[in-house]
Design a protein around this nucleic acid. Structure first.
Lengths: 235, 235
DNA sequence: CGCGATCCTGACACGGTCCTCACGAACACG
DNA sequence: CGTGTTCGTGAGGACCGTGTCAGGATCGCG
């Protein structure tokens, strides 16, 4: 929940933002053109996008549409133009916020917090229990309480990303395509063998009995779902 | 998903916003003080809040906290002050957007659309009841409330597809051809045996008495219909 | 350059799902 | 009462999706 894509045609602005964000524990990827932005986003699907509208190759609105085609990550638009029409177009194309230059870094960071807060809202609780395993989304940490003490469980980046997507939609069934798009980006939608493999690894590391999963469930032909053990049904 | 609470101490601004919003089919409630805002919100829980920070009685941030205590509706803050510190405080207190006066109405409306778009997407839970069975289309999950607790019911992909088509047209009669074309695609329009089989499976899994269906009904020679159980005992 | 961790691909066994076929029941009609 | 049609139900085999393992490619790092 902290991978940010920064897109701006002025390298010094990108650098400045990246430094600020990395200091706040964000994982930052950058791009200076629209095409590069879409390619980078596909390779490392972001949880958050900071997008300058004045790009040399593509119209900013087209970049928004390109991202919205497969990602639902919040998009914060930066722009030098303060015309009302530009803002309306960008927001209606799928952007979530619009900030005109020059801006204060404090304000930018506050708006990013507001966006991530809402994007991750359904899961306001930072720690999720899977039997004996405890997943702390905020701290990025998994512990397993064995018979004699707590043990740290190490997850690879891809395992984290997959687990995060599942845990963010408790009880909801996610199709293979959805999962592949979220974690590996579009273009990997047919790499189902991949998904099976990482699901198996997650089960091996988290489930009490990996052979018969209780939390990371599969519905044949449909997809996967995270079933919180004793959950409060809501509607 | 369209009830808006407008809070501003200047009545003419409230009036102007209310007119604009009502013209766009929003249901508008208003308040001119912080206390009144909290009271009105409690009486008519809003889906969206437009809040001016310069209120006479309460600090705006306190109003935000008061709302956030029980509501997760998006809050858009209006303010005459453009200081960075004010924005950061409001956003970190739980506001979702911050707009400084003077502002364009177009921009305000576009920001409202962006907020409702994101807040409204995870909701809209269309849970359909079929007697003791509950079908959650969004989560793709079916539960059956037995004498002793809730049991998960597993449906195969084709069963889901067929059920989905039926539930999307409540009470409407659908011919065999329509159903076959929708679920199996064109070319299978004569495989009526197929349809009978899967209808039987759905009834076995969902109906209280599969031999005498109450929800998944057949009209001989015509087709099938989903009767949303208004508990009309027919005989 | 070597080493470890991570990521991806291919292959196989198993279980579930899908479809076809066949038969009995209910009903309308002459 | 016989006949035809339509619907419900059961059983069987072909096929697809899933879990799992092994092995190679790639990347980061000392």
């Amino acid at each position: 929940m902290n991978r940010v894509l920064v897109v701006d045609d002025e390298p010094q602005i990108v650098r400045a933002l990246a430094i600020n964000l990395r200091a706040r524990r964000y994982e930052v990827h950058t791009a200076t053109t629209g095409a590069e932005a879409l390619a980078t986003a596909a390779r490392n699907p972001p949880d958050l996008v900071i997008l300058d509208l004045g790009l040399p190759d593509l119209d900013g609105v087209d970049v928004i549409r390109g991202l919205r085609g497969w990602s639902s990550a919040p998009i914060l638009v930066l722009s030098g133009r303060s015309d009302s029409i530009d803002k309306v177009e960008a927001l209606d194309a799928g952007a979530d916020d619009y900030l005109t230059k020059p801006f204060g870094v404090d304000e930018l960071l506050a708006r990013l917090r507001a966006l991530t807060r809402r994007a991750g809202s359904p899961e306001s609780q930072p720690a999720v229990q899977l039997g004996r395993a405890t997943v702390d989304l905020a701290a990025r940490r998994v512990t397993y309480t064995d018979e004699d003490g707590v043990v740290d469980v190490r997850l690879t980046p891809t395992e984290w990303h997959l687990l995060e997507v599942l845990l963010r939609h408790p009880g909801k069934l996610l199709s293979q395509k959805q999962l592949l798009r979220e974690v590996w980006g579009p273009g990997y939608e047919n790499a189902q063998g991949n998904l099976r493999l990482y699901m198996a690894q997650l089960r091996r590391k988290l489930e009490p009995d990996p052979a018969r999963p209780r939390y990371l469930l599969n519905e044949p032909g449909m997809g996967y779902r995270f079933d919180p053990g004793t959950d409060v049904r809501r509607h």
